[in-house]
Design a protein around this nucleic acid. Structure first.
Length: 108
DNA sequence: GCTTTGACTCTCG
DNA sequence: TCGAGAGCCAAAG
């Protein structure tokens, strides 16, 4: 369960590389990891043991949409909405769970 | 060790 | 333009 030395670790590392006020996409992360495990990346976020370290809310789908972590039935993902609000403060405009300014999506 | 699921993406209808 | 289905990879059970 949640191996600290695995694929997900690499995802967290890339996520931490994302500058503040910027967001990234699952596809991008997977591509950087040299894999097509887009879903694996998202799943790693669901199990992310690095809550404050890994800004999962900073990761969006390739279309710029938030995805589903905000609409998840998981109670742990509920307060993430608050993180999105903070993200907006940083310069990332999120409207209706979607990134308005795509310029904020940075490619690692 | 095999089967199921998942915060996704792409293509076809 | 919108909707549904198949595909890929990895981790959890």
């Amino acid at each position: 369960m949640k191996p600290n030395n695995s694929f997900n670790e690499k995802v967290y590392a890339l996520l931490k590389k994302v500058p503040k006020g910027k967001v990234t996409t699952y596809k991008n992360l997977a591509n950087k990891l040299g894999t097509r495990a887009y879903r694996a990346v998202g799943r790693a976020m669901a199990c992310n043991p690095y809550a404050p370290k890994v800004p999962c809310h900073r990761v969006v789908s390739s279309d710029g949409t938030i995805g589903g972590f905000n609409g998840t039935k998981n109670p742990n993902s509920a307060p993430i909405k608050r993180k999105i609000a903070l993200l907006k403060k940083e310069g990332v405009i999120v409207k209706a769970n979607k990134i308005v300014n795509f310029e904020r999506i940075v490619v690692l």
